[in-house]
Write a protein that binds this DNA or RNA. Structure first.
Length: 408
RNA sequence: GGAGAGAUUCCCGAGUGGUCAAAGGGGGCAGACUGUAAAUCUGUUGGCUUAGCCUUCGAAGGUUCAAAUCCUUCUCUCUCCA
């Protein structure tokens, strides 16, 4: 098998391929241009979107050329695949600004150079599409009977599927065709939920151009307990540090289930395969492997400095030692402590509780720690004596959530 | 266009005049056990100036001492018919 595909396979990226042997032969002959699509439905990507982009980097390292396709056009409709309800339609302005910010995020990860890696936006051809021409040229190649047999649409037969969504597959197929024509793109990669759309595009190109192109999907990553990977209590793990702080991002990976460590090291880091395997060998301390996973991945997304900070902060919170200043920090006025800071307010202000009722529950259940003491009485305020000589204080909610309070 | 069904707290889903801040499950949070893991068990899960008060059951009105529950109108969704 072609080395690029071997790498993907070893690292757990292969789910389905339309013709693995054929693709391998094509890759043996030289650089293959491939594409990944990504709809700008939000201004930040989350980690689940990144699986194909990790594969992107592996393929590129093996000499192939990648296109990141921003779905500025398709997002105007919304992909029904894997969804049970129609997605909220977004305004064009919104989509444009989302696309721009996603492109920035991707650029940090991929470093587009315009030749071996570049972006395009399907808005460029979809937005001015003529309906009648589209039906004549493209629509006639699609069988409704066939489309209805796809899982993605069958699922929606229960809850209802609008005509606009039903067209998504045609548009995505058309994207593939356009990219084939414009850039000689021969391969589409994506999550396994895209399988139906990818196959449809492949067939369209065969019919219209008589050309053989390929599709490759990656497993939809879940944690070993079946949950969607990258979901936190607050929602998905976003790449935007303003939504998911690098510290929280780091902690998510630091706390993955033992069984997931090897798989995640292989998929979400660029450490050599051997090293990933060695790190997660049974005899070894899994926590070291988790720490490495967290650091590597945080460094990839947020940079080495942020990864170091997150690691130091985590060590300070959990290990003792480390650097306290790297912990999540909030600044509160000294005067409030002098006057006696009501504990419930303190936990809310420190961002550890979202309401006073929640803070009250925390205190009542024995989960609120102020400095070294479990604060068991919600009525006792926290005075300035709780602050250390630097005017600082460590608050803890439960076992894992910390905040360092500095006063000023 | 016609005939039905439905909209409940983060999600699913009970509830058809007071005992309802609303069963049950999921999820979340906390505690025990641990390894900042998983599994398990226990508690908890609208807000606040917390023995009390305020807001919530698609929206707006109305009946009633009292409504998620009854009436009217509206919005949206689904099913069947044309």
């Amino acid at each position: 098998m072609n080395p690029a595909l071997v790498t993907l396979k070893e690292r757990g990226f292969l789910q389905q391929c339309t013709d693995l042997d054929g693709l391998s032969k094509l890759m043996d002959q030289g650089p293959v241009t491939f594409y990944v699509g990504c709809d700008p439905t939000h201004h930040s990507l989350h980690i689940g979107h990144m699986v194909p982009f990790f594969a992107f980097r592996h393929l590129r390292e093996h000499g192939h050329h990648g296109i990141a396709l921003l779905g500025g056009g398709t997002a105007r409709i919304g992909d029904p695949s894997g969804k049970t309800e129609m997605r909220q339609l977004l305004s064009y302005e919104n989509l444009d600004s989302n696309a721009a910010s996603i492109e920035r995020q991707l650029n940090r990860f991929i470093s587009f150079d315009g030749t071996t890696a570049y972006t395009d936006n399907n808005k460029n051809w979809l937005a001015r599409l003529n309906y009648i021409d589209f039906l004549r040229d493209i629509g006639r190649h699609f069988s409704v009977n066939r489309m209805l047999s796809f899982e993605a649409y069958r699922m929606r037969m229960e809850t209802g599927l609008s005509f606009i969504e039903f067209n998504y597959q045609l548009l995505q197929s058309y994207d593939f065709l356009e990219l084939y024509r414009r850039h000689g793109c021969r391969l589409q990669i994506g999550g396994d939920d895209q399988w139906g759309n990818i196959v449809a595009g492949m067939e369209l190109i065969r019919r219209v151009e008589g050309a053989e192109v390929f599709g490759l999907t990656f497993p939809l990553v879940t944690t070993s307990d079946g949950k969607k990977m990258g979901k936190t209590e607050k929602g998905a793990l976003f790449l935007d540090p303003a939504i998911t702080s690098p510290y929280d991002f780091f902690q998510y990976w630091r706390n993955v289930t033992d069984q997931d460590v090897e798989r995640f090291l292989l998929m979400f880091t660029f450490l050599p395969t051997d090293e990933c395997k060695a790190l997660s060998e049974p005899g070894r301390n899994v926590n070291e492997a988790k720490e490495r996973l967290a650091w590597e991945l945080t460094a990839l997304i947020h940079g080495k400095d942020e990864a170091d900070k997150a690691l130091a902060g985590a060590k300070a919170a959990f290990g003792g030692g480390g650097d306290r200043s790297a912990m999540p920090t909030v600044s509160l006025p000294r005067s409030k402590f002098d006057a006696g800071y009501p504990v419930l307010d303190l936990f809310v202000d420190a961002g550890l509780s979202s309401s006073k009722s929640e803070a009250r529950r925390l205190v009542q259940q024995g989960g609120a720690t102020v400095g070294a003491d479990i604060w068991a009485d919600e009525k006792t305020p926290v005075g300035s004596s709780a602050l250390d000589e630097d005017g600082e204080l460590i608050l803890r909610a439960g076992k894992k959530r910390y905040a360092r309070v500095v006063t000023g």
